[in-house]
Design a protein around this nucleic acid. Sequence first.
DNA 1: CGTTTGACTACGC
DNA 2: CGCGTAGCCAAAC
Length: 152
Amino acid sequence: MAYAHPDPNAFRAVVWQIVRQIPRGQVATYGQIASMIPAPDGIDAETYARLAPRWVGEAMNAVSNVDAPDVPWHRVINGQGGISLPPGIPAALQQRSRLEAEGIRFDARERIDLGVYGWAGPDKTWLEANHLLAPKPLREPPANDGGQLPLL
DNA sequence: CGTTTGACTACGC
DNA sequence: CGCGTAGCCAAAC
């Protein structure tokens, strides 16, 4: 709808391609997916990072409209681990039930633990073959138990 | 034709 | 850690 991408169709195709890689039982965020796609020429990285997540949302909306069977749109959620679709509408209910059917659990606040179910992204080989970037890591609880201290 | 509104995030309280 | 807000800009109202 808004936030025009220079080439909406191409962008959407790439987003779908990435979403197809999300394994069953795992989830990815809008921003994470956006971070794998290079910014178009003429758009600085900062602006792109600000707009791209919404474009990803548009791409997901396009999927549900036609319900492309091979694009697991339900595995894409927001950075807080929640479903971004307005609560209560059919599509949102469907997304939630599909995720639960894959063994994904929601906490009391209806949020998914990205530290547990968050997808690490496609492997490097696939990314390079598709001219994509390594995804920005999902931010999760430090969980610093006897963690490795960076040696310098 | 001015306002509202986003399948988002980062940031400040 | 939760809630409000700015940023963005084209559609839908």
